[in-house]
Simulated assay, not measured.
Amino acid sequence: MMKIQWYLPTPAFTKYVCYPEMLGHYTDFPQHAERRGEGFLGSYNLHLVFGGEGYVFHEGERIPMGRGKGFLFPRGAHQQYGSDLSQPWDVRWVHFGTELPLPLLEEADGTRGYFFTFDLGSGLESLFDEMYQLSASYETRSEPRLSALLYEILVNLLQNSEPLHGSVPLEIRHSIRSAADIIHGECGKPWTLESMARLSGYSSYHFLRLFRVVMGKTPNRYLTDCRLARAKLLLVSTELSVAQVATQAGFTQASYFIKVFKQNEGLPPKQYRMAFGS
């Protein structure tokens, strides 16, 4: 049996965007079970299950919680959950405070409980392990890192989790993000919606819909953003002409590049180079 937990003092700096209050790691601990009334816990409560089985009760429903699943309760919510007696959890958890307007936190606030699957290979274990190490030998100078690690965990889940009854499974999210990485790395190519869709094997219609859900923007908007980022780097780090920069960044016409650049950056490429170039 392993039952490790830490309680952290209120941080000396009061302006962290998020901060852990208590955290722990339980393995082979079948007695792990909680039942808290409405208003009892004044912090968010996040649990990630890396092995074993357990359950959460929510609005009269018993929700199985096994490997690769997690739950997030908001402040003050009624909570009832526990480990399976014969196959106890390997669970990592943290109670924390934050005012961040992240969608998963807003979902938990609105439904009084957010239940999800998460990507076991997204590095969450190592983030928790570092928080554990800092908590075990707590020093006030560790506070910024503890806050940063918690923030990284929340953003990681934002990208690598999906509601239990979600519309876009994790494997599809991975496929879309892999396509986005290729587009970013090769943004100078003459991409079309059809050629971008082929990267993930979906039809143009489905790719457009899925890309908008996963990446928060259309494929063409994402491509333009990547091209503009490359153009800005070329402007400040090379002596290429504006027309050459436009070509290398993937814009077919210099005049169109100048128009798009000014719309997005508020000044034309030459002025951007003068302002930020070495």
Rank of each mutant, 00 (worst) to 15 (best):
M196L: 10
Q79H: 06
G54S: 11
E139P: 02
F50A: 05
Q248I: 13
L240H: 06
S278M: 07
L210E: 03
E21A: 12
Y138H: 11
R92N: 02
F96M: 03
T238Y: 06
Y44C: 06
P144G: 06
F115Q: 02
G54R: 08
T14M: 08
L8C: 09
G166Y: 05
L127Q: 08
W93C: 01
L41T: 09
R173I: 10
L105G: 02
N264Y: 09
I183H: 02
F207H: 06
Q5L: 13
S147A: 15
R35V: 13
P9I: 08
G121K: 08
T27G: 01
L104H: 00
V49C: 06
K3P: 00
T98E: 04
E34Q: 14
V242D: 05
A246M: 11
R221Y: 10
A246N: 04
P101E: 05
V17M: 10
Y19K: 05
C187P: 05
F73G: 01
R273C: 12
Y19F: 15
P30W: 04
P20M: 07
Y205W: 12
L158P: 02
V94F: 07
R145L: 15
R67N: 04
Q159K: 12
T10M: 09
R67H: 05
S135K: 03
K189M: 13
I172T: 14
L48A: 03
Y55T: 10
A275E: 12
Y222G: 06
D129R: 11
Y81T: 01
E107F: 04
L208T: 13
G185N: 11
F128Q: 05
P20S: 07
Q271M: 14
R227Y: 08
P163K: 05
G113C: 01
H47P: 04
Y55S: 11
A12L: 15
V213R: 09
R227K: 15
Y202E: 11
G37P: 03
Y19H: 08
R62S: 09
E139C: 08
Y7K: 11
T14D: 12
L41W: 03
L210Y: 10
E171H: 13
E152C: 06
A249M: 13
L210D: 04
Q80N: 06
L72G: 03
A136V: 03
E107T: 11
F128I: 10
F13D: 09
G188A: 10
R112A: 11
P163I: 05
V49P: 01
G70P: 07
P64Y: 01
T140S: 10
R230N: 03
E34N: 14
M215W: 03
S175C: 07
C18Q: 04
L164D: 07
R67Q: 12
W93A: 01
G24W: 02
L102E: 01
H206S: 15
K189I: 06
P9A: 04
S142Q: 06
G60P: 14
I182A: 03
P9Q: 03
G121E: 14
L72V: 07
M215P: 02
F211P: 04
S126I: 15
R198M: 10
L199H: 02
N220F: 13
F116E: 00
F29N: 00
F29L: 08
R67Y: 00
V56F: 02
E162D: 13
R212D: 12
D129H: 12
S195N: 10
Y272G: 11
Y151R: 12
M22P: 00
L240E: 02
Y202T: 08
R221P: 01
S137H: 12
R75E: 06
G123K: 04
